[in-house]
Design a protein around this nucleic acid. Sequence first.
DNA 1: ATCGGTGATGTCAGTCAATGACATCACTGG
DNA 2: CCAGTGATGTCATTGACTGACATCACCGAT
Lengths: 187, 187
Amino acid sequence: MGRWEPDAAGRLREAAMALYAERGYDGTTVAEIADRAGVTARTFFRHFADKREVLFAGSEQLEQHMVEALAAAPADATPMEAVTAAVLATAQFFDDIRRDYSRRRAAVIMSTPELRERELIKMATLTTSLTDGLLERGVAPDVAALAAETGVAVFRVSFERWIAAPDDVPIGDVIQATLKTLAGLTA
Amino acid sequence: MGRWEPDAAGRLREAAMALYAERGYDGTTVAEIADRAGVTARTFFRHFADKREVLFAGSEQLEQHMVEALAAAPADATPMEAVTAAVLATAQFFDDIRRDYSRRRAAVIMSTPELRERELIKMATLTTSLTDGLLERGVAPDVAALAAETGVAVFRVSFERWIAAPDDVPIGDVIQATLKTLAGLTA
DNA sequence: ATCGGTGATGTCAGTCAATGACATCACTGG
DNA sequence: CCAGTGATGTCATTGACTGACATCACCGAT
């Protein structure tokens, strides 16, 4: 056993989610989160840039995963096919173990303007990354931006539908359904 | 002359813009803004909810204006036609007098993550309002959301192009051009 | 074995955004 | 002339966030 309990960041994430869900974001102080995680407030800020970021810790990996899936799509795939592959690649991040966590997290975010702001900028960053990935595939700028925007929209809608869906519905199925809806809209 | 100089909110807006442009958002304190406007920091917070909001003061009127234009569109207009009317209605907010202000404001916002977050949530709110307006026109929910999203995208892109354009190009022309580009994309 | 470096954490002091409570006082209508 | 109102000032406080410095188990080199 080391000098400190391992995974302070993980404990802080869990403590934050629990307290945000229980007392609300505004009703929770960083000191309380840190206390519950067994560290000081100063350590909280060594792991997370601010009080919001603790809820968005996994987003870089998710984004990276999507970008990799985009790059891994066949060279002759259409822009929309490549984006679809990227969105479908998120499925393995949201297995059933995380669904309950995702629900509580979404509830907290939706009820707190500050957190909704952070969520929006994460989505904007994701859009930019996907656009860049498409540009690297040689897609025209206008098309790349539009395809990326569409892909992120599909992800957003699918995620919302998924957390509202019964527990036995995998997110991959929801994404497929959303893509079908989209195809119908643009037909 | 009253007990205090009139239009404290206006003075605070101008002071904030000047200081944000000069020293950056982070390098500016609310106390400094208030000082320059000839009031105290407490008064700043009586006029604006927080340090970011001072840059987004006109957004409610803009949104209201767009919603009204949407509602005023002919009953037989298609959803996209109605949204187009709403976007074009913004033209009168951005005459040439405000272009320089708009440029400086955009530069500050783009260089400050916190302000970009606020901008994004304003756009999201606008999207929601336009969606609601379309729903009141009897548009189907899926179509309404998509049309609103598209309209806001057109507005965003047009605004960016406008502040980058020569001074004699009116924003209305830029919006028209953007709409043409969009038509080409979806053709 | 031990010695010095490293990394994660604690401690402390400080800045600044944001809010609540209360005071002030020119202006206004009666 | 007087009571009420509204915009502002003053004061105190909380809490997010940062910089500087100290601590000390661990680990690798000697």
